[in-house]
């Protein structure tokens, strides 16, 4: 069957303004949107640019805006949309477009870097310590949900705070990454990590719009993780009673 794809195009060398190209593509309802994009590039227009790698939702390369919502092109099938109408594919919002569907992810990875993981002393790594640290099932489950994050950037594209209010906001994925370490019972620098979260443009920028949770391709309860982290900050600040 034929489905119409309306695709965002922008080549900074040629175009003053972005525009849309329309492609009438022969596809199956069970095809991934990524398959459709590849079909366009391989048989209709070799100049179309988009990222991809694993094609099954674990590498995080192909976050796009599909019919207005951030999603992974390899995780959405044609039949997930009303394909009697055109399917509109655009780059992730918030980020600068470099070409067509490709955005500059540097600001995103900079934030991931900014939340600061713990530097493990070399001595420990070369095998002085014995065996593994014990972590019981309850402790382990505290941060299990956050481990699903694949750094695709979809949550930034959807977050009203970062897109409309504070473009320097540290953002959902970076807080989630911090949460992953803060709630890991093995982490020894929790206080420092919580302090990092409270820097300007930090965790308190989050107004719990829940849009990150809505769009997350890995169905992570991102807002809940942010709220738990906020709660932890408040509890840590209270004077400890005997």
């Amino acid at each position: 069957m034929k489905v119409v794809f309306k695709i965002y195009r922008f080549n900074p060398k040629i175009d003053l303004e972005p525009h849309f190209d329309v492609f009438n593509v022969e596809v199956e309802p069970t095809d991934r949107i990524l398959d459709c994009l590849n079909k366009i590039r391989w048989t209709m227009d070799s100049s179309l640019s988009f990222r991809m790698s694993c094609a099954h939702g674990i590498c995080g390369s192909d976050g796009l805006t599909i019919n207005g919502q951030a999603a992974l092109a390899c995780q959405k099938l044609v039949k997930d949309f009303d394909y009697s109408q055109e399917i509109v594919v655009e780059p992730l919002r918030y980020f600068d477009v470099v070409k067509d569907l490709i955005v500059d992810l540097e600001p995103f990875f900079k934030r991931i870097k900014s939340i600061n993981a713990q530097r493990i002393p070399t001595a420990l790594i070369v095998g002085d310590a014995e065996k593994e640290r014990v972590q019981n099932l309850e402790e382990r489950s505290e941060f299990d949900d956050a481990l699903k994050c694949i750094l695709c950037g979809c949550c930034y594209s959807a977050c009203p705070v970062i897109t409309e209010q504070d473009s320097d906001f540290v953002g959902p994925a970076a807080i989630l990454r911090a949460h992953r370490y803060i709630f890991d019972s093995r982490t020894t620098d929790v206080t420092e990590r919580l302090a990092v979260m409270q820097k300007p443009h930090g965790i308190w920028g989050c107004k719990s719009y829940y849009m990150c949770t809505v769009v997350c391709p890995k169905k992570i309860k991102v807002t809940q993780a942010i709220l738990r982290t906020k709660k932890k900050i408040i509890l840590e600040q209270q004077p400890k009673s005997e």
């Binding site: 713990q118 070369v126 593994e132 019981n136």
Partner: peptide, 21 residues
Amino acid sequence: NAIYTLEHLGVPFSRNQQGKI
């Protein structure tokens, strides 16, 4: 030794009832 090193680096291995890997 390689597994323990990974654990020390922070790899979040699934745990058994005893809290071990």
